[in-house]
Design a protein around this nucleic acid. Structure first.
Length: 260
DNA sequence: ATACCTCCCTGTGGGC
DNA sequence: TGCCCACAGGGAGGTA
């Protein structure tokens, strides 16, 4: 489930595999992942283009070409970006394959096709996509973060999840952050004290730092994420049973004993 | 502002 | 054994 750390990993894949290379061929194996662009147009615009330096905002990965042209990738829940040799046979879920001029391929692999690939032709089209998003979670200052929580009535989990407020945090990250900060997910954001809001910020920084190094939210046994799929999940901090229910529209796991 | 719903999509696993 | 359904999670978009 690609969140900020996973997408950051894909950015590194792209940076290492594709940066500076030319796209020789675009193969759209499933148009179901194209958003607002046809397979034909994607091929026409991108074939022959040289890949610029990829960058990331929230869960979006942006790959610029010349003349303001850019590919914008969103990985939904099951998407990934693979660097493969051109001789390796594609697998079932390789939806779009870019063959580069060094016989390597960038593959957009995605089982569920919940999100996909966009092509923006100029800066304003790209800006319109980015305008929907709040600041990247890694760029947010503690002051802005605390202020944001203070002005929101909804559940703190919902605030963290809302991409228009903070970009990059997904379901696993939010649960992990709140567990580490010892804050219950259903607390109204503005009911948090200044100290608690700072704890959540510190937890966010810590979780993001470790997760970004790992390329995912690591399912470690001393993290909440390492237990959420257990048959009888127990809190790795206090040993008591974890609660699971829907909060802000997503399955949410937390410890009623540790989180208040 | 916010809660809640449906839809998009596919694979998995539980119940019968 | 097979069938059906709920569920997982990233979102958008609509309604109250």
């Amino acid at each position: 489930m690609p969140e900020l750390p996973d997408v950051e990993g894909f950015r590194e894949v792209l940076d290492g595999c594709g940066s500076g290379r030319c796209v020789q061929r675009v193969e759209v194996r499933d148009t179901g992942v194209l958003r607002g662009v046809s397979g034909q147009r994607l091929r026409r615009e991108v074939e022959g283009q040289r890949l610029g330096r990829p960058w990331r905002h929230g869960k979006l990965l942006i790959v610029p070409f010349a003349d303001e042209l850019a590919l914008v990738w969103h990985f939904g829940m099951t998407g990934e970006l693979i660097c493969a040799g051109a001789d390796e046979p594609p697998v079932a879920h390789d939806r779009v394959v870019l063959t580069l001029d060094d016989e390597r391929q960038l593959r957009y692999r995605d089982q569920r096709k919940l999100q996909g690939i966009r092509l923006t032709m100029n800066q304003s089209a790209l800006a319109r996509l980015l305008d929907r998003l709040g600041p990247d979670a890694l760029d947010m200052t503690r002051e802005d973060f605390v202020d944001l929580l203070a002005e929101r009535r909804g559940a703190v989990k919902g605030v963290l999840m809302d991409q228009s407020l903070i970009a990059g945090l997904g379901n696993l990250l939010c649960d992990e952050i709140l567990w580490r900060a010892r804050v219950a997910p259903r607390r109204p954001a503005r009911a948090l004290g200044n100290t608690e809001a700072r704890h959540v910020y510190t937890a966010m920084r810590g979780v993001l730092a470790t997760a970004t190094r790992a390329g995912c939210v690591p399912p470690r046994r001393n993290w909440l994420t390492g237990h959420r799929d257990d048959r009888e999940p127990a809190c790795p901090r206090c040993g008591r049973g974890l609660r699971a229910r829907r909060v802000a529209g997503r399955r949410t796991v937390w410890c009623e004993h540790c989180q208040h």
